[in-house]
Design a protein around this nucleic acid. Structure first.
Lengths: 344, 344
DNA sequence: TTGAAAGCGCTAACAT
DNA sequence: ATGTTAGCGCTTTCAA
């Protein structure tokens, strides 16, 4: 074991409590004493034993960020911001993957790690509002993403229905009329898929267009491969779409690949757009039109709310926060002839 | 506070030690007793308080994976494997980012979190062999990647010189003669950049070709944008290259983008290859030729070695492990006319 | 302004 | 096979 408070106390000729107060600043310490203690700390190279502190305080200083897929770049970028914010507030953030599995999500919700984490930032995709209401776990909880609404917890997300509408309106403004949606979710209640699908439907309805069921493709997951496979099915239709809206950027990128493999061009033959604004889409060929949520903001804000909750700061009641987003029009829906404008 | 061992002991009418033994299995417990204790545990919903356990044991059950950039997909894919392996062995893995900063790396090396982590898997890029030899930290350490060699720690990596040679030999076999290298590292000692550059040089030398200094481009970082900017400089040369080898897949993808923006084609005009085999390169247009290290293997193996070290298992002395890799030839260097073969 | 001491929940050495 | 108990390092109440 390393250097402990007791070692410092002995060295400085003071009591344990005094050293603790120099370290934590809970109550005033005389200037003389403080100096002696600080010197001992420096000489011996003391750092607090966190396990002991946590045992005593009943807190661990660890918060978790639970997301469906670890290697979805959207979450990686979000996590990056969250980790930095957490570190700045004296917390360590650990990432947990639910694998988009309902049972695992329920476990996380009920505090599978309740003794190791002080709080949870959760991006659920399979559980429902009722699951959250019925939860027995008590660790502070902040929800992100569009999984669940109307629950007594902080909830940070963009308005997915509105975002989807903006994308589809953009495609309509380009003159596209057979607009497909990839990623409707395969039977399970991926709530965010429902919301994005709803925005898609609303935009079509507002334009007086019918929703053609064969243009709405469900997928098992929401990765590149899922987008690719779904797009192949769309290309096999008698009348393929002239535009595709992907559930997220990964799905859209998979669709772009499938279109190229079929010898068609994006955007000339088929325009493609996604949601998330992952960096990949800013360098792909063609670059990808997308909805850009402020990931940095979401990540930092979620951590701030959670830490406030943990530390019992007086704060506003649970809020449903809709952060702004913007449409990034790039080559995959750009006007023709606009290919290969320099990026970066 | 929640339910403690004492609560269970009272409920089951046994001693603390017995409950502890039911939970941990350190010594045998009678069948009758075990059943009663287990029932109490189930009824009261007991879970061990990890802070207490850690305080007592002197270990935290947390290991760290320190990498240069959190949102480099290569590391995300590696981390995914490592996190699963760690969980399987009863450890929680936290990710730390060094930001490829030398001071931060030194801090990590000397145990900036010594009280919170039991061990460290470290992928350094700026520190040197001497830094590692001089380290004062004592937490068990496993090195991954090509940052440092010949130090008394486990070290897991692919042979970067050999891998680079394979890539360049492949480009040579395609008949390319002006082969550029992007990502030589800008002055700082990014050891892995040196190694990959060495492989590049060796392959050219073996083919009896000179190394043209203007075809070797240093970059600040190793992301998509760096590849893009470097490639623009190469395209501005009097005689641009007919092939490009990127330090990693991200750099290569940036280069592909720059080539397209300049109105040239990959691979017809310029062939491009990288290292890492990130999923992005399997769906990009064109798909990216690359070196595929076994990320799953590296991640799991690093965790296994580290945990063995932590738990003091008798094990072989520190080893320098070179894991196998293979060349994945895809469209970006494929024979002409091979575009858009179906992937997936 | 400072000190003494209890006790957070657990494990492991020592007893029985 | 089971029980008793010391003590990991820290924070915090009560006293001085």
């Amino acid at each position: 074991m390393g250097v402990s408070l007791k070692d410092i106390a002995q060295r400085a000729g003071v009591s344990l409590a005094t050293v603790s107060n120099v370290v934590n600043g809970y109550r005033p310490v005389g200037e003389q004493t403080r100096r002696r203690v600080q010197q001992a700390i420096d000489e011996l190279g003391y750092t607090p034993n966190l396990s002991a502190r946590h045992l005593r305080r009943g807190r661990t200083g660890i918060i978790a960020l639970a997301i469906p897929e670890l290697n979805n770049p959207y979450f990686a970028e979000l996590a990056d911001a969250a980790i930095r914010e957490a570190a700045g507030l004296g917390y360590t953030l650990v990432m947990e993957s639910s694998g988009a599995d309902r049972d695992l999500e329920l476990l996380l919700l009920d505090g599978s790690r309740r003794h190791i984490i002080d709080g949870l930032i959760f991006s659920p995709v399979r559980i429902t509002r009722d699951d959250v209401l019925a939860r027995t776990g008590t660790v502070p909880l902040v929800l992100i993403g569009e999984g669940v609404y109307d629950v007594p917890h902080d909830h940070i997300a963009i308005d997915n229905v509105a975002a989807s509408r903006v994308v589809v309106e953009h495609l309509l403004a380009l003159g596209r009329r057979r607009i497909a949606f990839i990623g409707a979710g395969a039977g399970q209640d991926r709530q965010s898929a429902q919301l994005r699908l709803r925005g898609y439907r609303e935009a079509l309805a507002a334009a007086g267009l019918p929703v053609d069921a064969e243009l709405v493709v469900a997928t098992e997951q929401f990765g590149r491969r899922d987008g690719l496979l779904a797009m192949r099915r769309l290309l096999a239709l008698d009348t393929p779409p002239d535009a595709v809206f992907g559930y997220n950027d990964l799905v859209a990128i998979g669709a772009v690949r499938a279109i190229g493999e079929a010898g068609r061009r994006v955007p000339e033959d088929i325009a493609v757009a996604g949601i998330d604004d992952i960096e990949e889409g800013r360098f792909s060929t063609p670059t990808l039109t997308t909805i850009a949520p402020d990931k940095e903001h979401i990540g930092r804000f979620a951590v701030q709310r959670l830490v406030a909750l943990i530390e019992g700061a007086p704060l506003a009641p649970p809020a449903d926060l809709h952060l702004p987003f913007r449409l990034e029009v790039r080559e995959s829906t750009g006007p023709l002839g606009d290919r290969h404008r320099a990026v970066g």
